Computed example of a mutant assay.
Amino acid sequence: MTKPQKSIDSYISYALAAAHRKLHVELSDKLKTLNVQVETWRVLQSLRVSKGITMRELAESVLMNPPTLTKLVDRMVADGLVQRQLSPHDQRRVHLALTDLGVKLSDEILLHVEEQNDRIIETIGSEKAKLLREALQTLT
């Protein structure tokens, strides 16, 4: 006997994907006014809070595969947002850092990101938001 089939929206993985898609498209539309992709924000924010991060560490942090990230970082370097620096401890390693222009753009982007984050918390409540963040971190 076969099990009765559930609709796709009854699966947690689908609900996560649908929520991600909605939030990503919403943020992407906001950031288009700054000519910035969501992935660019992830890179800027990750570099802003870390000192001397490598490309491999950054790829893990921003959820991108290394070849795609390399292309994005190359564009960001050309745009004057990011600079590559040789590690003072190991000349074979290259670290990434924000330029002043990168910090300025990061500040502008953060207004949109914080607005979206605040709206999510307002919609589901701070306790549910905390539980959701913890649950998602457990999955990852």
Score class of each variant (00 low, 15 high):
32 K>M: 10
111 L>T: 13
13 S>G: 01
70 T>N: 10
132 L>I: 06
84 R>K: 14
108 E>T: 11
124 I>W: 10
62 V>T: 02
38 V>P: 03
72 L>V: 12
125 G>I: 02
79 D>C: 01
82 V>W: 06
113 V>G: 05
92 R>W: 13
56 R>F: 10
107 D>K: 11
21 R>N: 10
30 K>V: 01
46 S>P: 00
113 V>F: 13
76 M>S: 02
40 T>Y: 00
7 S>F: 14
111 L>M: 11
67 P>T: 02
133 R>V: 04
1 M>Q: 07
10 S>T: 06
85 Q>T: 06
20 H>R: 15
56 R>Q: 07
109 I>N: 01
128 K>W: 08
6 K>R: 14
10 S>P: 00
89 H>Q: 09
62 V>E: 01
67 P>A: 05
136 L>H: 00
76 M>N: 03
74 D>H: 09
136 L>D: 01
6 K>S: 09
97 A>P: 00
26 E>S: 14
91 Q>T: 09
73 V>C: 05
92 R>M: 09
118 D>L: 14
86 L>N: 12
100 D>I: 06
132 L>Y: 06
54 T>N: 00
107 D>T: 13
87 S>W: 10
56 R>N: 05
120 I>S: 02
112 H>W: 12
112 H>V: 01
135 A>D: 02
125 G>T: 04
67 P>Y: 05
29 D>G: 08
6 K>F: 13
116 Q>P: 09
93 R>V: 15
89 H>C: 02
50 S>R: 13
137 Q>K: 09
52 G>A: 04
36 V>T: 05
130 K>F: 14
50 S>W: 08
109 I>H: 03
91 Q>V: 09
17 A>Y: 12
19 A>L: 14
117 N>W: 14
78 A>H: 10
90 D>G: 07
53 I>G: 01
45 Q>H: 14
27 L>N: 00
33 T>D: 08
116 Q>L: 12
107 D>H: 13
14 Y>H: 14
135 A>P: 00
14 Y>E: 07
82 V>D: 02
57 E>L: 08
134 E>D: 06
114 E>H: 15
114 E>Q: 15
73 V>P: 04
139 L>H: 00
77 V>G: 01
39 E>L: 06
67 P>R: 02
82 V>R: 04
136 L>K: 01
44 L>A: 01
5 Q>S: 11
133 R>H: 11
100 D>F: 14
88 P>T: 01
66 P>Y: 07
36 V>G: 00
132 L>F: 11
23 L>M: 08
61 S>G: 00
85 Q>M: 13
13 S>N: 08
136 L>R: 00
115 E>T: 15
140 T>C: 00
127 E>V: 06
107 D>M: 09
15 A>N: 08
68 T>K: 13
24 H>G: 03
97 A>Q: 09
106 S>A: 12
101 L>A: 14
66 P>H: 04
25 V>P: 00
14 Y>N: 09
44 L>C: 03
121 I>M: 07
1 M>A: 09
5 Q>M: 13
133 R>A: 11
1 M>C: 05
96 L>G: 03
85 Q>R: 15
90 D>L: 05
87 S>C: 09
21 R>F: 13
120 I>R: 06
94 V>Q: 12
